[in-house]
């Protein structure tokens, strides 16, 4: 990182994307990650920054429906894409069934990993409404939780999945 390697700030680019269904337009510098754009420019601080190197999963968001790590995606790479963050899960005052179940069963303790888990789990239930425990473990293998020991998270997803399928 010697000085001769540092280059002046390149100009800002106008980024157009959809965040939680809302069209946004924001002038950003190319080196800003999606995580930084969401938290610092759009003030959507539900997405957490953890290791920032792809080793924890807490910054997971959905880009065009697919769970990715917002700390390793550039904001400018999301040009024209649709991003979903934890802020987009509830419908007004009504929580998403996953959020309900996480709260009910104690699947969120310190809560720091929760947004990443909720979105990764949401994508899983979107493509597999009745996942086996094994499928669930594989799908969530990129999200770390240091509180729950995971069991409560799996149980909460199972409960939410059952409710979403209409099982009492």
């Amino acid at each position: 990182m010697s000085d001769h390697r540092v280059i002046p700030e390149p100009p800002k680019t106008v980024l157009h994307m959809k965040v939680n269904g809302v069209r946004i337009e924001e002038a950003i510098r190319p080196h800003k990650t999606l995580l930084e754009v969401l938290r610092e420019d759009l003030l959507l601080t539900g997405t957490k920054h953890g290791c920032e190197l792809g080793e924890c999963g807490t910054c997971a968001v959905l880009v065009d429906g697919e769970p990715v790590l917002s700390c390793l995606v550039l904001g400018v790479a999301c040009q024209g894409k649709s991003v979903e963050t934890v802020e987009g899960m509830a419908n007004g005052p009504e929580l998403h069934p996953l959020q309900e179940a996480f709260a009910e069963l104690g699947a969120a303790q310190c809560g720091y990993c929760t947004p990443g888990f909720l979105l990764t789990a949401k994508e899983l239930l979107d493509r597999d409404p009745d996942p086996s425990r094994e499928t669930m473990i594989a799908a969530l293998a990129g999200n770390l939780c240091r509180c729950t020991g995971y069991l409560k998270i799996y149980e909460a997803i199972e409960l939410a999945a059952a409710r979403m399928r209409g099982v009492k």
Binding site: M1, V6, I7, P10, P30, H31, T33, L53
Partner: peptide, 8 residues
């Protein structure tokens, strides 16, 4: 941990 500047 922020990315350094670069042209994209």
């Amino acid at each position: 941990l922020r990315l350094p500047n670069f042209h994209y």
